[in-house]
Structures are given as C-alpha cells and as structure tokens.
Design a binder for these strands. Structure first.
Lengths: 329, 329
DNA sequence: ATAATTGAGTGTAACGTTTCATACACGGAT
DNA sequence: ATCCGTGTATGAAACGTTACACTCAATTAT
C-alpha cells in the first residue's frame, strides 16, 4: 500500500500550472478551457495528487453528492442486501452513501436524521417506523416499506399481492386449512398488507383462515403455544402456514419439527422476504421474495429525481414465489 | 412525519438572538459564555431549528467527524455484521459512517478510496485486498483481516489459533484423517493462516493432513470432484474436514449429503466465521467464530486514536469454537 | 477600417464556519 | 481615584471551493 503526499488545494494546482484559480475550477467542472491550459492544469493536478475537496465545493453549490440510508440494522439479511444495493445504485450515479443504524427505535431514528442532516446530505432513504419523524423539508426523503402519506414517496414490495400469492400457492399445492402468522412492529405499516392479501385470497376462495398477530416484544413463544394448542394426536389443525417473514417461517419450521409435524408433508410453510444465504444460495424456506435490487434502484431514482414537482407517492414492486423445501412446490 | 423549515445559518441565529456570530459559535462548541447570552442563543437556535453545517465546520477545523468503511459487499453476512458494528461503534463516538463497496475488485477498491477521500473523511477502515492501494498518508487507515506491513495497523481474528483450534477440536472428537479445504482470493492474506494453524496442529499431533487450496474463480466444483475421488464404497477417506469459511463448509456439507456421507456421523465438518442466521440464531455449521463486534470496536478505537505515534501493527483477536450439528461436539 | 460579438482567462466575492486579535466592562488592589 | 488584570463579547480573516463580473484579444459583421 502506498501512502503518498498530503492534501494540495486548487490554489496549489493553479500556482504549479501557472494559471488562475478560476481556470483550475473550470477544468474540474468540465467548463471549456483552452487546450494548452487544460493540459497544464491536469498535469499539475496529477503531479500534486490533487483531489477536489467535496466539503468546500458543497459549501458553494449546496450539493454534497452524498445521500444517507437509515436502516434498523444489518443483521437482517434483507436490510443488509438493501444497504448493498442502495450503496451501489448511488455509487453508479456518483453519490456517496452515509449509513445510519436505528435499531428500529423511534428516538434513534430521529437521532440518525439529525446526524446525517448535519452532513447536509442531498437526500435520505429511510426504512423507518417513527410516524413523527422530523425531517428538514429541504432534504428529499424516500421511504422504503412504510407509507407516510401522499407527501412522502414510498417504495415497497407489493405486499398485498404477495399475501394473495402465498394463499393461492398454498391452495394450489393442496392446502385446505390455512393459517397466517405475523410478527413485527406495533406501528401499522405496509407489511401488514401481506396478511390482508392472504385473507382476501382465502375469502375469495371461500375457505377460512386463522391468524395470530403478534408484536416483536411478544417473541416467538406464543406461536409455539398456539401451534401446540392446535395439535391433536400428532396432527396439526392446519396444512398451510404463511409467515410474514422468512425469519418467523424459519422458527415455525423448527417448532413444527420439534412437535413431530413433517414439513412439507403434513404442513407447508411459506415465508416472506426471499433473501438467500450468502446472497446466491439456498433460502431458509419457501418464500415470497421481495425484489431487493429493484427496490433500491427505484428508491435512488426517485430520491435523485430533478423535478420534485409531482413525485409518485407509492410504488409497489412485484414479488415472486420461490419454492425451497418447505412447500411441495 | 413532520417536514419543517429550511436551513438557517449561524448568522440567522446571531441576528435572532441579538448577539455576535462568534458568540453563537462558542455556544455550540462548549466555550464558556455568559448565562444570559447562552440562553438567548439556545432559544433562538431552537426556534429556528438550527443545525450546525458540518461541511462548513470541516472547512475550518479539518475534521469532519466522518469515517469510511470499505467492504467487498454486504452479501456475506460476516461483512454485513461488520458494517453494522463499525457503524455503531463510530456513532457512539459521534462519528458518521460512509460505506463504500468494492466487490473485492482492486480497481474498485482504489475508486472507493478516491470517493471517500474527496469527502475528507477523518479515517478509513478497509477490508481490502489490493496490495498497491494508494491512500493519502494524511488520512488514518486501519486494515481489517489483511496485513500490509508494520506501517499499516491491522486488526484480525487469530486465524492461526483458529486453525489450530479446529484441528484439535476435530481430533478431540475422534477424527483421525483430516482434510483442509480453502477457497478465497489469490492474493495471500491473513486468512491463509487458518490453514497454517490447522496443519501445525496436525503435525504436532503427528497425524497427516490433506489439503485442497483453490481460488474464488475456481468455484466449488473442484471440491466436489476431490471428495468424489476420495470416496470408496460409500466411505470417505476423511473423517474430519476444516473449511476456511462457513460458506464453503455449507457447500461441502451439501455435497457430502448428496454423496450419501452422513454428517457428522461419517465425517465432521467445521467452518470459519461464525455468523448466525438473522444475527442471533442457528449457524450454518459448526464453526470457529470470529469476534465481529470486537474487531469493529478495536478497529474504530485504533482509527480514532489521537496519538498516532506508535500504533500497534497487528492485533489478533481470540476466536471461539461453536458446535452446531456438523460436528459431534 | 471600424464596430460589434464572441471566447476564454482572471480576480474577487461569497458559502457557513472557527479562530484570533481586539475592545470593553467590571472588580480588586494599590 | 487610578491602575491593572480578568473575563467575555465582538468583528474580521481564513478555510477551499464556485460563480460572476471583467478584461482582453481575436474573429466576424457592417
């Protein structure tokens, strides 16, 4: 690794090249400049190892070419992938990415916003839950997964459609007694539509559907209790279970296994998220997969949109079913 | 979500509070100021929703309170966790984190360095492979996992010790014919010491040890071929396999399963990394776990160390064995 | 041939901070 | 009553850029 020189300024380059300061600026901003001058400036810059100072530039232009992503954590592989894809989408457009982690805590989310606002980011992409989040209205904001009303653009998976898809797939695979398990934040969000879609599809098909809806702080045990209650003589009352996350589905599969219920023989399980282990390999369970890359790409597109007059308020991206052992499909 | 006001400046606050510009500055830098003045400034700032402009501040102080993390990707859960832990460690110290992804490509790594250098970060933490990486010597750099020589501080897991631990554990669990599988970058790194440690422990115990060392671009198939070659009458020549990553271990387990070799009955497998699914649950395989959080914490500590006179050049952090189904322990 | 127009380089004033030298007022000491 | 610290507010300069108004020369139109 080479570690060279300290930080020369435009003034240094100008002196070295024997031109005016403004000329150097022009060269680095693609403003036409005489051939000879341009050559001299570039030579001097190369020699001195000059790099523009984004901070100073931002001070004048009010644009930092830096955006922020606020996420609960990077432990959930869906979030991790999202971070990667947003980062790449931004980099492709010449933007840097500031990452801030909130642990899904409303106060921490506000803290994150403050932190990145101080860095004068050109925009914020947030997967946040705090409904009272305060954001300076001069900084563009795009929400992922959570709808805050028509004034705040939101990009999300087609959760309702995904729920429907899960129900239909299970029915198609021969299930007749369906169950929906939900765990998550206690503030209502877009993700809740997964359940709505699931139930709507059941109703439309004219079959019943049990549900158990819990909050994160309730933990996984109540699900186990519920399952045990509906276990008679080793037979489960349900033969198709839709879980609102892969993580929950993973737990449910283990619980069933522990109770001697064969998956997918006796009961089929579908999760939601579709993040693969190590990014390219097997899933944790059969799943309704979110289009992570497309979500990232779209969010960045909207965030960086020049014309902020009439932005879309909610963009739903199509999900897809992927079978992986916990269903017969 | 509330979206309020635009960006007032110190000048605005000064006018509103009826004090001088410098006084406002003092208040926000904890420099003693008269009780009444302080109250007025704080009131005005609150009312206007003032936030310091980090960019302008940085221009004067040469400190941005922002650091960068350069990673290959966020798909590998070890990297994802590392990103999270570094981000939190930095945030705890009042620093923001810029994330840049390199895809483990040497040119992209250089590109990342350029990008974050333009943002005048106060330091860079890099998990990089490019041995010729050029970094401005005025910006502190800490390497994770890769040793670039005594001039560049590096924090890594105790890879050698981990390899030893794997060998000893396997022997302890009754293995007598050991095998080491390695996949990775073709530039030699700290991680290679895993194999060294493994072999050293074998040698010390006086038993042999076969090895197959491949590069990323070779893919996983050669491992399958190797295993098949050493499969006679459904019996594998080896009863203990150490893989240099969990990912490889995961693949190997599936290959063995496909060949009818029972894991851990016929052969025990240990991987390396120890990242849990969803951060807190089961592993992919028995493993030698890296102390991710401690690595992040240590790297940040060194990066932000005031006295940059005599920094440690290599810090090895202790790993630990975690059994999870692919060994008998 | 002269005036008007273009084109390209120069110099300077911001941008929002911090910092430093200066000014000022207040007490305590001579 | 004067002098001298001490503590605290003020104002201006500087940080590294960009943008704008100028200048000056060369080219085109009248």
């Amino acid at each position: 690794m080479k570690r060279k020189g300290s930080s020369p300024t435009m003034k240094d380059v100008a002196r070295e090249a024997g031109v005016a300061l403004g000329t150097v600026s022009k060269v680095f901003n693609g403003i036409p400049v005489g051939e000879e001058y341009k050559r001299r400036v570039e030579e001097a810059a190369r020699q001195l190892g000059y790099q523009v100072n984004n901070y100073a530039r931002a001070l004048k232009t009010n644009r930092t070419r830096t955006a922020a992503l606020i996420l609960p954590n990077t432990v959930n592989p869906f979030f991790a992938l999202l971070a990667g894809d947003v980062c790449k989408a931004l980099a492709r457009r010449g933007y840097r990415m500031l990452l801030a982690l909130s642990d899904a805590d409303p106060d921490a989310e506000q803290q994150c916003v403050r932190m990145v606002e101080q860095n004068k980011v050109d925009g914020i992409i947030g997967l946040t839950y705090n409904p009272a989040l305060e954001i300076n209205e001069s900084v563009p904001f795009v929400s992922i997964d959570r709808y805050f009303g028509p004034a705040v653009p939101c990009v999300a998976s087609d959760n309702f459609g995904g729920g429907q898809m899960a129900a239909r797939k299970l029915m198609e695979l021969g299930c007749e007694r369906l169950l929906f398990f939900r765990i998550g934040s206690d503030v209502p969000g877009e993700a809740d539509k997964r359940g709505d879609g699931f139930q709507a599809a059941c109703q439309q098909a004219g079959i019943g559907c049990s549900t158990l809806l819990l909050r994160d702080e309730d933990g996984y045990e109540p699900f186990r209790a519920f399952l045990r209650e509906h276990l008679r003589d080793g037979k489960l009352d349900f033969d198709g279970i839709f879980c609102n996350t892969d993580r929950l589905a993973y737990h449910v599969c283990r619980m069933l296994q522990g109770m001697g219920v064969n998956v997918p023989g006796d009961a089929q399980v579908i999760g939601f998220d579709g993040v693969r282990r190590f990014g390219s390999e097997a899933l944790y369970c059969s799943t309704i997969a979110q289009p992570v890359t497309q979500i990232a790409e779209t969010a960045v597109d909207i965030l960086l949109q020049e014309d902020r007059g009439h932005l879309p308020s909610l963009i739903c991206l199509p999900v897809s079913y992927i079978g992986d052992g916990t269903t017969k499909g």
